[in-house]
Amino acid sequence: MIDIHLYGKLRRFAPNGDPDSDSIVSVPHRDGDTVGSVTARLGIPDADLGANLFVDGRYADRRTPVRDGARVGLFPDDMQLLYKWYFRPPETGS
């Protein structure tokens, strides 16, 4: 399974969309899953996604692979307050 934590206007895709709680939706893992494939299965429009996407707490984008058991955190386009320049590139890890 993959646990997807949703924020802002993306919370509507979770069973519990309360803004002062954790809005989590769990989906079964499939081989080759990426952030993009998972959001597509949930029906989240690409246009709603910002640049603050995380896989296991690491800065990610739509192409980032998602393993079984991963935690994915997705913020919408109007909430991307954290700069990507703060992070090391994904290849070298943090």
Binding site: H5, G8, G57, F75, M79, Q80, L81, L82
Partner: peptide
């Protein structure tokens, strides 16, 4: 999107970062 009226800062204030930093670990 961040600075416009009813954008992230206007709607949620700088505290929108709490969830973002938490997600980033």
């Amino acid at each position: 999107a961040i600075t416009k009226p009813k954008g992230a800062l206007n709607s949620y204030g700088t505290a929108v970062l709490v969830n973002i930093l938490n997600e980033a670990g």
